[in-house]
Amino acid sequence: MPNVEVEIGNRRYSIACRTGEEDHLRSVAAIVDGKAKDAAGALGNLGENRQLLFASLLLADEVLERRAGHAPPADAALFETNDDDVADALERLAERMEKVARTLEETGQPS
């Protein structure tokens, strides 16, 4: 089982993968790294954990938007974002999380 060195958020990781999946792993790591850099650029100095948290939230938001049929045009560049776009996406995510928290509080569900 090969190990692949990737860099995400200015930190290097060694990750094991199946033979033949090395390039795919590098590609998805580059996407996560791009989102981590977007988050750091939009929100300023973030610790590693928060940078990865916001990168995950941005990626999850993108997945949900695509599932809802709001995918970006096919010719859109992978990392073609600006700080305002990232900040807007994070604001939408924060609003969604607050709504979920309110719903859980109202229904008495443990958080």
Score class of each variant (00 low, 15 high):
residue 1 M to H: 06
residue 1 M to D: 06
residue 2 P to G: 03
residue 5 E to H: 04
residue 5 E to F: 00
residue 5 E to P: 00
residue 7 E to F: 00
residue 7 E to W: 00
residue 9 G to V: 04
residue 10 N to T: 11
residue 13 Y to N: 07
residue 13 Y to L: 15
residue 14 S to I: 05
residue 14 S to T: 13
residue 15 I to M: 07
residue 16 A to W: 01
residue 17 C to L: 05
residue 18 R to V: 04
residue 19 T to C: 00
residue 20 G to C: 05
residue 20 G to I: 03
residue 23 D to T: 12
residue 23 D to V: 07
residue 24 H to F: 09
residue 25 L to R: 02
residue 25 L to M: 02
residue 26 R to M: 06
residue 28 V to H: 07
residue 30 A to F: 01
residue 30 A to I: 03
residue 31 I to M: 10
residue 32 V to M: 14
residue 32 V to Q: 05
residue 34 G to C: 05
residue 36 A to Q: 04
residue 38 D to C: 10
residue 38 D to V: 00
residue 38 D to N: 13
residue 40 A to I: 03
residue 40 A to P: 01
residue 41 G to R: 08
residue 41 G to M: 07
residue 42 A to R: 07
residue 45 N to M: 10
residue 45 N to Y: 05
residue 46 L to R: 08
residue 48 E to D: 11
residue 51 Q to I: 03
residue 52 L to Q: 02
residue 53 L to N: 01
residue 54 F to Y: 15
residue 54 F to P: 00
residue 59 L to S: 10
residue 59 L to P: 03
residue 61 D to I: 00
residue 62 E to Q: 13
residue 62 E to W: 02
residue 63 V to S: 05
residue 65 E to R: 15
residue 68 A to K: 13
residue 68 A to T: 01
residue 69 G to R: 05
residue 70 H to Q: 15
residue 70 H to E: 14
residue 71 A to M: 03
residue 72 P to F: 01
residue 73 P to M: 01
residue 74 A to L: 10
residue 77 A to M: 03
residue 79 F to A: 09
residue 80 E to P: 00
residue 81 T to Y: 12
residue 81 T to Q: 11
residue 84 D to E: 15
residue 85 D to A: 10
residue 87 A to M: 08
residue 91 E to H: 12
residue 94 A to S: 12
residue 94 A to H: 13
residue 96 R to V: 09
residue 97 M to W: 11
residue 98 E to Y: 07
residue 99 K to Q: 14
residue 99 K to L: 13
residue 100 V to R: 12
residue 102 R to V: 11
residue 104 L to M: 14
residue 105 E to T: 08
residue 106 E to Y: 01
residue 110 P to N: 02
residue 111 S to K: 11
